[in-house]
Nucleic acid binder design. Structure first.
Lengths: 204, 204
DNA sequence: TGCGTTGTGGTCCGATCGAACCATAACAGA
DNA sequence: TCTGTTATGGTTCGATCGGACCACAACGCA
């Protein structure tokens, strides 16, 4: 194999150019020429590494999702050993808020792709593979919290988890638009956690 | 004035074609030719009634927003005279869910425009004119509910209102993607209303 | 030293883009 | 009936689109 080149590295650089353009003005402006100019390479490279524009969009999204997942996993393990259910739920929800440039970028790019998710079957797989994974995870943590006596045993973990996740996701637009500060969004989430983790009985 | 033509009617028809295309595959496919074909008119008409493509996108969005506002107002008045705070809050939140074709279309088109809202100053005005109007309205209704003894006086109306609205808005994507049924989303909202309108003291 | 695979750069093609341009049909008022 | 505004249709332009094509540089292997 001649001309040793790191394919993954190349694809990542091109994908990053796609993200920047998509976040700036939507998929509309993600043309092969613009991406090439943004990445500082001849347009021909895009064909070589991704083939068609459709594959470029799909590939860029996959890399973005893989990155986001890795960062999320990292922040989860940063919680240390044996984190409380509340801390884990909080970390999950904060992952859904645009609290830094990486999360902001991920969420804006997802917004740019969203309408395509509705119709494009290839892209739909990127989001539908585990539709309720987050909600189920939060629900199980709430259930665990109930067993530990941190959470009111009367409430329905699944329903509360679903609304918690929806709430965090619904806080994205106003924060991205600058209507809410990130801090306010975090406060709103914490307030809900205060309510749920009210500690009805400290003993098991 | 010759050739009596209802301009508003024409612009509406063209705007509807924009909505259909935008909802189907995003702003990317909203080209002058596609819109003309979708509306069944020569492309020239779009120039005449909207000027540039940019003005077409902006105009179509304004008509969409005006329609949505009118429908919302209609459903509010359908609540009858002297509706309970809970009924009004519920109606507001359900307006944010894709429960029929019109709401679904409105919300999908908004999603298609979203990334533009972040950067395009002209479009930003369409959403930023009253950033907290909904939250404030819900908050005032929760406060009224507290005075009527329908709502726990301990909770913070503004914070709960903000999270309610965010939650409803965050339920849009899973419903649009078919991961949640509309009925499930409504149930989740009603569950939160059950919690908030717990009726701590029935007398004032 | 060739040889064949791998990667790069530049160019070209047909299609389509947004928008300008022009001719003319329709019709209210003089 | 004539006139000028209003509206419509069709055509054309330069730019840009996605993607195909071709020549060739780089390099491991025989």
């Amino acid at each position: 194999m001649p001309r040793q080149v790191d394919h993954e590295e190349r694809r990542r650089r091109l994908a990053e150019a796609v993200w920047r353009l998509a976040a700036r003005s939507g998929l509309e402006d993600v043309t092969l020429r613009h991406v090439a100019a943004e990445a500082g390479v001849p347009a021909r490279q895009l064909q070589y590494y991704f083939g068609t524009r459709e594959h470029l969009l799909l590939g860029a999204l996959e890399i973005l999702n893989a990155d986001a997942e890795r960062r999320a996993a990292q922040r989860m393990s940063d919680l240390g050993p044996d984190p409380s259910p509340r801390a884990v739920v909080r970390a999950i929800l904060l992952e859904l808020l645009p609290l830094d440039d990486e999360r902001r970028r991920t969420q804006v790019v997802h917004a740019a792709y969203f309408v395509r998710f509705l119709t494009d079957p290839a892209l739909a797989l990127s989001v539908r593979d585990s539709p309720h994974a987050l909600e189920d995870l939060v629900a199980s943590l709430l259930h665990l919290g109930q067993e530990l006596g941190h959470v009111n045993p009367d409430l329905d973990p699944q329903a509360e988890a679903a609304f918690l996740v929806a709430g965090a996701q619904g806080l994205q637009p106003p924060v991205l638009l600058g209507q809410y500060t990130p801090q306010l969004a975090v406060n709103l989430v914490d307030r809900q956690l205060d309510r749920l983790f009210a500690g009805h009985r400290q003993d098991a």
